[in-house]
Amino acid sequence: MFNISQFKLTVTLASLLISFASHAVWYESSGQAVIHNGNKQQARQQATQEAIKQALLFAGASINSVQHLTNGLLADDSIEIRSSGEVDNIELIDEVYDGDILTVSIRADIFAQKLQCRAADYQKSVVTTWYPIKHRQQAAVGNLFDFGQQVAINFQQEFNQHATGAHVYQLEPYYLSLQNGAPVAIELARKADAQFVLLAEITEFSTMQNASSSLAFWQTPSVSRDFTLSMAVYDGNTGDQVFKQSQGITSNWEFDMHESIEPSSSRLWQSEFGKQLTSLLQSLSNEIDAALSCLPAYGRVLYVNNDQISINLGQQDGLRKGDQLTLFQMNQFFDPMGKLHQQYQLHPESVTVTQVFPHTANITSFSGAPLVNIQANDFVARR
Rank of each mutant, 00 (worst) to 15 (best):
E254R: 03
S206F: 09
L229H: 04
Q195I: 05
S222H: 04
F196D: 07
H258P: 03
V223I: 15
L188D: 04
G248L: 08
V233M: 08
L199M: 05
V223Y: 03
E201V: 09
S222F: 00
I186A: 10
L215Q: 12
A192P: 00
A185K: 10
S230C: 04
A232I: 03
A194M: 07
M231F: 11
D256C: 04
E254F: 13
V223C: 08
I186L: 02
D256V: 10
S222P: 03
E254L: 07
Y234E: 05
L188K: 11
S212P: 12
I249E: 03
Q241G: 09
S222A: 12
T238K: 10
Q219G: 01
S230L: 05
E204F: 10
W253K: 04
Q241L: 11
T207W: 01
G248K: 10
S251Q: 12
T228D: 13
I249L: 09
D240I: 12
G239M: 08
G248Q: 08
E201F: 08
R225N: 11
L199S: 11
K244G: 03
Y234G: 02
T228F: 06
S214D: 14
T238E: 04
V242M: 04
T238A: 01
S213R: 04
K191T: 06
S222M: 02
S224E: 12
T203V: 15
S246G: 13
D193F: 15
A185I: 04
N210V: 08
R190M: 10
T238D: 02
K191G: 00
L198F: 04
E187N: 08
G239W: 09
A189Y: 05
S206Q: 14
M231A: 10
D240G: 06
L215S: 03
L188V: 13
H258L: 10
D235Y: 11
T207Y: 03
R225A: 07
D240H: 09
M231P: 08
D235K: 02
Q245E: 05
D235R: 10
H258N: 15
T207L: 10
P221W: 01
A192C: 13
E254M: 12
A211T: 07
S206T: 05
A232N: 08
L215F: 14
L198Y: 06
T228E: 15
L229Q: 09
S206A: 15
E254T: 15
Q245I: 01
I202V: 14
N252W: 03
I202P: 07
F255L: 01
A189I: 05
Q241K: 11
N252M: 11
F196M: 13
Q219H: 14
F196C: 14
T250E: 09
Y234P: 00
Q195N: 01
F217A: 10
S251W: 00
N252Y: 15
A194I: 13
E204K: 14
S212T: 13
Q247K: 14
Q245S: 00
Y234H: 11
D256E: 06
T250V: 14
D235S: 12
G248F: 09
A200M: 05
L215P: 00
S246E: 05
M208R: 14
E201C: 07
Q209V: 14
T203W: 05
Q195P: 02
M208V: 11
V233I: 02
L199G: 14
F243G: 00
